[in-house]
Design a binder for these strands. Structure first.
Lengths: 218, 218
DNA sequence: CTGGCAGCCAAACGTATGTTTGAAACGTAT
DNA sequence: ATACGTTTCAAACATACGTTTGGCTGCCAG
């Protein structure tokens, strides 16, 4: 990130600062000064701060969703069975590995996702759902093959729960690490945590659904 | 919330707005104008905006943690066994029931918690950990009794994962409801979702831990 | 009646933010 | 060398924010 163009320097700096402090708490002046570019460059190249935020996400999610699509193709072709471990494993390895050069990049990825989802008014949320909803639906389909006993509606919510567990944990990892270090005298890396996450999520996703139907239709 | 004093009117309005839009995105002017009080009243009664935020949390969490302590006492006294369902069930029923008059209050509670945790710099996080860490530790102890096969370190993270699933889901319920309604033609209440959450979390928490020790000590 | 005081109010203050502006610098094709 | 479109820059602009101020109420003890 040393001698890149102005646009990339802005994106590189913005994605780090957004992940660290959040969108509202990160000023354009903080971004531009740290990036070594003029303040007006953001509005010149992106138009507005909100457009900058979207650009940051696009640069992140487009390669990710493309890679995920490819991996799912590969899995369907080679006949690898649809198990929760396999499907979730693909997502995790991809999220951790789309930028192998920078290991911290994965943490930024999740923290950004967390910021996006906790963003209350949800402009970003809609944007994400419209632009990357297709891959998401495909993923869910494979999961349904993996746990046919869980009805689609229930599965939808369990995927949301899983998303929450992943994003929430990794988005707040910095603080959690200090707690974990204080209470257990050990620190945890992103890879460590994802290793712990996988069995938890698998256990949750394939849990038995309660007998009594909780009025699933109006 | 009709004819209460100024302090309570501010707290009532602030907790709703904070939950809806987040802390940084909610201005004191928005709070005071909606509450029908003067702008200066916040700084007069609370001292600063940050103190207001803490006051909102204190009013929420103190009754909750007291009730939780009492319920745990009751459980220990009456010899109810420590199962994941029982322990988590207590928390859920309490979170949903501490303010039975207002069903929406539970959603606000979780959304606020989500805002607090996703708050990047984490002043609030420390505050919560120091003021309510004791109840949290006690809860974790009971969980450990419930799933003795899971080592404490692993359990710590699984509780974090569970927290994430709960807070993330309920904090973004508004948006998720529209998605769920579009895709499955049904809507979900807070109570509905928590009913779905319980088996998911129980399944995750009591999942088998992988054989290979993931270098649990430095 | 009167003094004091806590609560309340409109107005202003200082600061930080996103955005816009107009000119300067740059690179490139003619 | 000249002209032109793009990019960069310092400066200013408008606005929104949290906070402070000084005076105005109403009430209750003396």
């Amino acid at each position: 990130m040393a001698q890149a163009g102005t646009v990339d320097r802005i994106l590189d700096t913005a994605e780090v600062l957004f992940a660290q402090r959040g969108f509202a708490e990160t000023s354009l002046r903080a971004i531009t000064s740290k990036a070594g570019v003029n303040l007006a460059a953001v509005n010149y190249h992106f138009g507005s701060k909100e457009a900058l935020i979207q650009a940051v996400f696009e640069r992140f999610l487009t390669p990710f969703s493309l890679a995920l699509d490819a991996k799912l193709d590969e899995m369907e072709a080679s006949g690898i069975p649809d198990t929760p471990e396999n499907v979730l494993g693909i997502v995790f390895r991809l999220a951790l590995g789309t930028h192998p050069d920078d290991p911290q990049r994965a943490a930024i990825f999740f923290r950004l996702s967390g910021q996006a989802y906790s963003q209350p008014q949800g402009h970003l949320r809609e944007y994400l759902h419209t632009h990357y909803g297709a891959v998401f639906a495909r993923l869910q389909l494979h999961l349904h093959q993996a746990v046919p006993g869980v009805p689609p509606m229930e599965l939808f919510w369990r995927v949301q729960f899983s998303l929450g567990a992943v994003i929430f944990t990794l988005s707040g990892m910095q603080s959690l690490q200090s707690i974990s270090k204080a209470d257990f005298n050990m620190d945890a890396s992103t890879a460590d945590i994802t290793k712990r996450l996988l069995p938890f999520l698998v256990g949750g996703i394939q849990a038995e659904v309660p007998d009594q139907p909780l009025h699933t239709d109006k």
